[in-house]
């Protein structure tokens, strides 16, 4: 995976999401006509906004480091692991329109490798904590029913900071952090299991651009509609 022009993508994705949202809220002309007729017929129509909902999502699963990496050639018997067990926490504001916004953080293993140098064991472990502003929207909004696949599927994109952590175990332990701008993109399917709870499956791409770390994750999530007003 080649590094991406983060700035360009970030702004265009944001623009795209906003324009889609605006478009989604535009009522088709026939329906607009019927609604106008209804408004004329019923002067008691409720014009208040809402409801708004605060939704908390927590999940975990499996990650796969999906870009190039380098294991130093000085290491004998190298053993590389690209898999990890990520976890994530997301707080989203669901307004009365399509576009949702929120914050996401969590923890994702990027990769690790171990081996020997002149008989001594070595181990390098790399992980990241994303701190991202995310935007999400369901594929279906004013179409279908609650059972429609499109209304249960959502796409999510975000950008922000990745705190990248490295740990070296060789002749002592060195732990270091470095920050990197980055982005994420995800697609999810949500299934209701109660009035306030859903479970969801999400496929997600994390990309910490400056440090060229990227991971593909598959997570099972619990979605809690924590608060509505």
């Amino acid at each position: 995976m080649l590094p991406l022009r983060l700035q360009t993508i970030r702004w265009v994705v944001l623009f795209l999401l906003l324009s889609l949202t605006a478009q989604a809220q535009r009522i088709p002309s026939a329906r607009r006509q019927r609604r106008l007729q209804a408004i004329e017929a019923d002067s008691l129509i409720d014009t208040r906004r809402g409801p708004y909902t605060l939704v908390v999502t927590a999940g975990g699963g499996l990650s796969y480091y999906s870009t190039h990496l380098g294991v130093p050639q000085t290491i004998d018997e190298p053993h590389l692991s690209r898999f990890g067990t990520p976890s994530s926490l997301r707080v989203m504001w669901y307004p009365d329109h399509r576009l949702r916004v929120g914050l996401e953080t969590g923890w994702t293993t990027m990769y690790s490798y171990r081996g020997k140098v002149a008989g001594d064991n070595t181990h390098v472990y790399v992980s990241a904590v994303p701190i991202l502003v995310v935007f999400s929207m369901p594929l279906g909004w004013l179409t279908g029913t609650d059972r429609s696949v499109a209304r249960r599927m959502a796409i999510t994109a975000g950008t922000g900071l990745y705190v990248n952590h490295s740990r070296l175990d060789y002749q002592g332990t060195v732990m270091s952090n470095t920050n990197s701008l980055g982005w994420m993109a995800a697609a999810s399917y949500t299934y209701p299991i109660g009035r306030r709870f859903r479970i969801a499956g999400e496929l997600k791409w994390f990309d910490a651009v400056a440090v060229e770390n990227a991971a593909f994750t598959a997570e099972l999530q619990l979605v809690w509609r924590a608060f509505s007003w």
């Binding site: 990496l69 990769y111 060789y170």
Partner: peptide, 18 residues
């Protein structure tokens, strides 16, 4: 190579190896 942070955090042997 996975290592980050200040160069002063690492010994010469660690830098030389990794």
């Amino acid at each position: 190579n996975g290592l980050t942070g200040p160069v002063e955090n690492y010994t010469y042997q660690q830098l030389s190896t990794f």
